[in-house]
Simulated scan of single mutants.
Amino acid sequence: MTGGGTCESSAGYVGHELNGSGGSAPISAKTQTFHRPVGPIAYDCVKVIIVRDGSAILFSEFGQRLVKLGDVVLLCANTLCGSEPECPITATTVYMDTDYLIDQVFWQHVGLLCDRLDARELASAMYVEPAQVLRLGEQRVGLVMPWLDELVRLTVDGDQYRRFNRVQALWFSLADVIAPFVKVSPVRLTPSQRERIRPTLPRHRQFNPLRTEARKIADLLRSELARRWTLDDLAGEIHLSVSQMTRVFTDAFGKTPLAYLTIIRAEELARLLRDTDLPIEAAMRQVGWHSRGHGSQLFRQYVGITPIEYRRLSAATA
């Protein structure tokens, strides 16, 4: 249910995965039926997964949860999530560009915010749980299914650009049903919040493009996964100070460089546990974790289960 793995598509394939990069539509959707375990895998966009039939055990930062018809899974960008179907499970996944959603936060609270940088900070303060399971119930999910089917059809036909206003209308209708179930942290919105550290006049209405330095750091981390990276090492690679480098990367990916490194290490460790017979300690060393206890703790923090449990789960369903 994370958008990858072995599946049968009941509505065709989108043609490309929405990943928040230039040239991708801000909203896209597809419906799939899953028969085998998936992930854990992380996407750099926000995902809303609506369960339409069947059930599965989902594992992410919330631990393990059973999801079934009537449930909606909300995953923030760069959040690892995997699943083990109990039986064939059908779900529609809506992929959304993070900047598009930040823009909606901005306009929702435009009277209290100075610019889109403030909107990004507000969203980070409100939506602190990266993975949530929302129990909408069968009746509410049945209500939104026609909207989901139309959204998928527009995506498959490539009409999400030409029919963009209709796509937005479908998303807003869906969001109106889902939003009351989303857990947010209480944030006091007062006029004093207009006074920000980085005021912008006139109001800034565009997001900056992804900086080359941020892309270079991500490429370095992925290409040398097992290296004992430090913030000083990374900053030196792109000739910025540690604070500048951290800000540039976090603005681009929504995670600090070392948090991002943990995610891709956990992702690769899961692949090794699933696809190879390497002992767990050897697999951990291969991704850069030299302490089994520390590695297990980090893996469980981001995946929701321990490496031992994950290997047992993979073996049982192979």
Rank of each mutant, 00 (worst) to 15 (best):
V51W: 03
D159N: 07
T79I: 08
I264M: 10
I178K: 00
P199M: 04
G304T: 02
P202Y: 09
S291H: 13
G54Q: 10
M145G: 05
D118R: 01
S28H: 02
D71T: 12
L112K: 04
E17D: 13
S314V: 06
L273R: 03
L221C: 13
V287H: 00
I238S: 05
R198Q: 13
R166Y: 06
V156L: 08
S192D: 09
T33I: 14
A318M: 04
S291I: 15
K183L: 14
R163M: 06
P40I: 08
G137D: 12
N19A: 12
D118E: 07
F253P: 05
Y310S: 02
T190K: 08
L143W: 13
S24P: 00
L240F: 05
E8I: 12
V128I: 09
E309M: 05
E213T: 07
Q104L: 00
S173I: 06
C45D: 04
H239S: 15
T31A: 08
T98R: 09
S60F: 15
G54T: 13
P130Q: 07
G158N: 06
Q206P: 04
V72C: 13
E195L: 10
G293R: 15
I280S: 09
A25C: 10
P202E: 04
T79R: 07
A119W: 00
S223G: 13
V51I: 15
P186N: 11
R194L: 12
T262H: 15
Q108K: 08
G293W: 15
A214N: 03
Q193M: 15
Y13V: 09
Y127C: 00
L74Q: 03
I50M: 05
I27E: 02
S24T: 10
I263R: 12
A226G: 05
G111Q: 02
Q193I: 14
A131L: 07
G288E: 14
G295C: 11
R203A: 03
D118A: 11
Q286L: 13
A282P: 06
L298S: 14
D277Y: 01
V110R: 01
D53F: 15
M245N: 04
W229P: 07
E121T: 09
A42Y: 07
G254P: 06
L225S: 13
Q160Y: 14
F106D: 01
E268I: 10
I308L: 08
N78Y: 15
T212R: 01
D97G: 04
P186I: 06
A123G: 02
D251L: 02
M245L: 05
P37R: 07
V94M: 05
F106T: 00
A123R: 07
R116W: 10
L58Q: 11
N165M: 00
E268M: 12
G20F: 05
T200A: 11
T212Y: 11
V184T: 14
Q244R: 01
G23M: 12
Q139P: 02
